[in-house]
Design a protein around this nucleic acid. Sequence first.
DNA 1: AGGAATAGTGAGTGATTACTCACTCTTGTA
DNA 2: TACAAGAGTGAGTAATCACTCACTATTCCT
Lengths: 222, 222
Amino acid sequence: MTDEKEQWLVDLLRRLEDDDGKKTEKQIRIIEAAVEVFSEKGFAAASTSEIAQRAGVAEGTIFRHYKTKKDLLLSIAGPVAAKLFAPFLMRDFARLLELPYDRVEDFLRAILRDRLEFARKNMKLIKILVHEVPFQPELLAQVKELFTHIVVTRVEKAVKHFQAQGALKEIPPWRVIRSTVSQFVGMIVFHVFLAPDFPFDEEEEIERTVDILLHGIAGRPS
Amino acid sequence: MTDEKEQWLVDLLRRLEDDDGKKTEKQIRIIEAAVEVFSEKGFAAASTSEIAQRAGVAEGTIFRHYKTKKDLLLSIAGPVAAKLFAPFLMRDFARLLELPYDRVEDFLRAILRDRLEFARKNMKLIKILVHEVPFQPELLAQVKELFTHIVVTRVEKAVKHFQAQGALKEIPPWRVIRSTVSQFVGMIVFHVFLAPDFPFDEEEEIERTVDILLHGIAGRPS
DNA sequence: AGGAATAGTGAGTGATTACTCACTCTTGTA
DNA sequence: TACAAGAGTGAGTAATCACTCACTATTCCT
């Protein structure tokens, strides 16, 4: 039944796989240059002339492939939003709920590890998305829709599953989700964006973060 | 001894109190209009002509008080950065460490409550600061300096104090700080910026957030 | 090989930009 | 009251902006 309403999501993600479909070499260079300039200066302060210059292309070439500058932005930031939530749509994620012996910590560790890697590989794209989402209504709507659809249909189910199992406290799922997202985003923002040179053992850092999320920072006697 | 090196910080905050010093009525209107336009469109997409129009002022008047558009931005965003960290410099905060009977949860609740209120009252200003910090090196440097100075001299001391007391786990203070900031920022961003219409009992929400930070989301049996 | 579609070009365009400047108006002081 | 200093003005300016278009180069199908 989920496959009916979420078909568009699956389609969306499938389209992301072959997004290198039929692109000219120059068009690829335009996208690469746009990512550079957008992430460095922000969308509004980025000029099409600089993008063209960095791509080694005439300015008119940009507008052959993209109607407007905003079009170029959306063609870049849109897919990032989808990829950001992609792992929560994978089959493995749904199947996971059928494995009652799977421990929450393994589950959380896997997600954090995966999204940390994703953030590292896509720093500039994420920066562009986060920066422009408040000013581009289309982007905001897309992100909100992706997030709510995924959360209510998948993640919330997973939370309730683990709660029934006794692995998670019986608190409202949205609070569990918010705490987890806060902790994970905080960790990723710190290590990837704020202090990328801060030395750390990735596996241990993941484990400690999940441990704090699960058991808190209070002392033992409590 | 802290009073020597941190004199500049104290001075900075004192200057914020009487920042309404000798300002013309039109100058105040310019600042108000600038806050509006900057937060709506972003600094780069905001035009001085629109700011002047909204302030009911000639465009030249802006440049009588501010050398450049960037000057106007910095005069707005700079003080916000300082006010953001201000409560961690208050005398009460330092004195708190001399009260061994004070419980961590009361401490955390007070901070969260205070910063939540601050965020509500200064939504637009915070939005401007967060949005422009990555693109204005002066702002970034100021925020980093404020944060590190405050953290190492005050908050870290507080964490170690509570650890010695047995109220907090013996984990590296920076990890305690990161977890706390993550959880608090996540809570504030959700309630103030993402879902301001989401109905909630503020006091209970504060209590539940602090409880999750202290004791985690794991089920009792563990 | 031929011809149509698509990719690429770059000079040109009107609109908008941040900022200037010569000027007037207001305010405080002696 | 006289006068200096600052506040306020708005037309003006050079630069830059996103975007267009008439044209050429390349690719692709038959």
